[in-house]
Design a protein around this nucleic acid. Structure first.
Lengths: 208, 208
DNA sequence: GTCTATATTGTGATAGAC
DNA sequence: GTCTATCACAATATAGAC
């Protein structure tokens, strides 16, 4: 109904069905991946009728693409300002990247796996949905790493840094089984790790 | 038919249908994961009829479990002898682990993602299918790391080492898009990396 | 916009001939 | 052991009432 002047809305508000579906889709897609997710799971999680999902988003694929675009932007876009700051030192950038990613990953531990997994089945999605394809390649950060270690591929350092940051989150379920850790213990380890990684990264740049 | 004395076989030979299905299942499951794999994909890849898959393995789940067990054993079992060798130094173990994992990952780059992905949906599978649940926890390697850095959780080092080794393989599709690398360039990077990581790992143990 | 009911397709599994 | 044909059900998507 919602025809009266007072209740008319743009319907992008948090409580709207459209937003509830997107919120549910974020949760279910990132946790289970595209193939293992059923539209019924999303509808149920959102507390709405299944038909509404198709009413708003036409298909499972279309809804998925929207969420993926969002996540890619979250994951790569937000470090743009840090890695392209020409006034900050390399050490400062390392501190910033580690801090920002830990902040993001603590709240959204499933994002990396989600992106990496879907990129496997469909690599073009990265090129298509990335805010700026050459963001990292052309970054000032990569230039600074190259200047620091001119005889080494700067991506070697980048991969080690990202690996140290992201891998524990990706590996968490396996890790907890392998080490008999509970959530509290793992959390403690991750907090300890947030302080450790910048020190280690700087050590890597000084080797030899 | 195969009734005559000369052609009678145990049918675990490489050319048998059963083995062809398993080989196809290894390939398709590890590449696409359980949910995204259709039994028809496996049958087609194996060049056999779909009905044969159920004849030999009863169900998709049962076939999957067999493959998962195999992969877990490949991935964790084979470092057992290295990490529990009480006569070798920590540095020697690092060299061995890096070399062994690179060897394995160069041939089977999809294994880590496969294991990590399925462990997400079903964490118990790790406990259930692992050759030895406490292999790493009780290893002599962990003891040696702890002795070297008594004031630090030894898993911090292990996670960094594994992250540096495994993460590039997991991230490869995304990495190639982000850096505009082709396969040849990535391969060169990985070979360079195999030599670099042991040096870096030893550097991490000397920090502070 | 939201629901119920249903069409349609995809997919795992089986029956039964050879 | 291997195939063809088919079942049974699950899952996406749509039609149409309200």
């Amino acid at each position: 109904m919602a025809k009266s002047r007072t209740t008319k809305k743009v319907n992008k508000t948090p409580g709207s069905s459209e937003e509830k579906i997107k919120e549910a889709a974020r949760k279910v897609f990132t946790k289970k991946g595209f193939a293992a997710t059923r539209t019924r799971d999303i509808a149920e999680e959102a507390g709405i009728n299944l038909a509404l999902l198709n009413y708003y988003f036409r298909s499972k694929e279309k809804l998925f693409e929207i969420i993926m675009r969002e996540k890619l932007f979250n994951f790569f876009g937000f470090i743009g300002p840090i890695i392209n700051d020409e006034s900050s030192s390399l050490d400062t950038k390392i501190d910033g990247i580690v801090a920002k990613y830990f902040e993001l990953l603590m709240d959204n531990p499933d994002i990396p796996f989600f992106i990496l997994g879907e990129a496997r089945n469909n690599p073009e999605i990265i090129s298509n949905a990335m805010p700026d394809k050459d963001l990292i390649k052309n970054s000032y950060f990569i230039k600074q790493v190259h200047e620091k270690k001119p005889d080494q591929d700067p991506y070697q350092f980048l991969l080690s840094m990202l690996g140290m940051i992201i891998f524990p989150f990706v590996m968490r379920p396996v890790f907890q089984r392998l080490t008999n850790s509970d959530n509290a213990k793992t959390l403690k380890m991750l907090l300890e790790r947030r302080a450790l990684i910048p020190i280690w990264c700087k050590a890597l740049l000084k080797v030899k």
